[in-house]
């Protein structure tokens, strides 16, 4: 038994090693991973790395150009250090992205699990609900619900999460339906285990990998949406250094100083870009046949 386990473990490890090798061959994927690591490090160590307090104003020194002494990227209209605000902003954006996607994945997986396992009217109900949610243009529904709930960082995470669940419900449902006829599920049923136990202990672990992969690929979308909300003024509110909100503040000074607009927008772009690079590489690693055909 233990020898079998170790053999299994070995193949799993060599499979992983192979995936890593394929991933590393993808040059842009590596570039994306490096950029992403920089953002993650900046987010984690923000108070240590940032040269200034992101909210500290210096009214005597507004609109300092990039490269000014002490301010690498210059200052904004209140004389706040732009670099420090961007570094703290990476915290907000990554946090929103991760939490929103987690809410969506958990909610969607539970509903998908129920729909796939029980079938019948439960399935019909969940799938109709999925269709209804898909019928709304995503951002329009998000804006509408945000309008009613009111702008705050928590509401951004909750709304982006709650509106994105259908993707995961569909994914999990399809997998569960395929797994339901597998022997191990039949065996568990025959042993008289409860439905909840079968669903969460036996089926769920088997569908987790694709959920985690698509959740990771969903993070840039959530970051883009939260930046768009911040820009429109419905998301995280100033003075918090959320990148979208920073662009929105900056646009009022477009004629005086375009420096303020360039950087926060660039950060959203770079984070999303690096996620997309990594996503492409992961997809290629997981589906080498397709990758060979396409590249």
């Amino acid at each position: 038994m233990s020898r079998d386990m170790s053999r299994e473990e070995k193949t799993a490890r060599s499979e992983l090693a192979h995936l890593v090798k394929v991933f590393l061959r993808h040059r842009l994927g590596v570039v994306g991973l490096v950029m992403l690591s920089c953002f993650v490090l900046a987010a984690v160590f923000a108070p240590v790395v940032a040269p200034y307090d992101p909210l500290e104003m210096d009214l005597l020194n507004p609109f300092a150009p990039p490269g000014s002494p002490g301010h690498l990227l210059g200052t904004d209209n209140y004389g706040r250090d732009i670099l420090s605000r961007l570094i703290h902003g990476s915290r907000i954006s990554l946090l929103i992205g991760i939490v929103a996607v987690t809410i969506a994945a958990v909610l969607g997986s539970c509903l998908g699990l129920l729909a796939g396992y029980y079938g019948g009217w439960v399935d019909a109900l969940v799938m109709r609900l999925v269709e209804v949610f898909y019928a709304f243009p995503f951002l329009i529904l998000v804006i509408g619900v945000m309008a009613v709930l009111g702008p705050s960082i928590y509401n951004v995470m909750i709304v982006l999460g709650v509106v994105s669940w259908p993707l995961y419900a569909r994914l999990v449902r399809a997998q569960v339906m395929a797994l339901k006829s597998e022997d191990f599920v039949k065996a568990a049923t025959a042993m008289g285990l409860s439905d909840a136990r079968i669903m969460f202990r036996h089926i769920l672990p088997n569908v987790l990998t694709p959920v985690i992969v698509s959740a990771t690929l969903g993070i840039p979308g959530a970051i883009l949406s939260s930046a768009a909300l911040g820009f429109l003024g419905f998301g995280v509110q100033p003075p918090w250094p959320e990148w979208g909100a920073m662009v929105s503040e900056a646009k009022d000074f477009m004629l005086i100083d375009s420096n303020m607009i360039i950087w926060p927008g660039m950060c959203v772009f770079l984070v999303v870009l690096s996620f997309n690079f990594v996503g492409d590489a992961v997809r290629d690693a997981l589906d080498p046949r397709l990758a060979k055909q396409l590249h």
Partner: peptide, 11 residues
């Protein structure tokens, strides 16, 4: 795919 539309618009 990666440029936020509000940023592209302003640029």
């Amino acid at each position: 795919v990666s440029l936020p539309s509000f940023y592209l618009g302003l640029l």
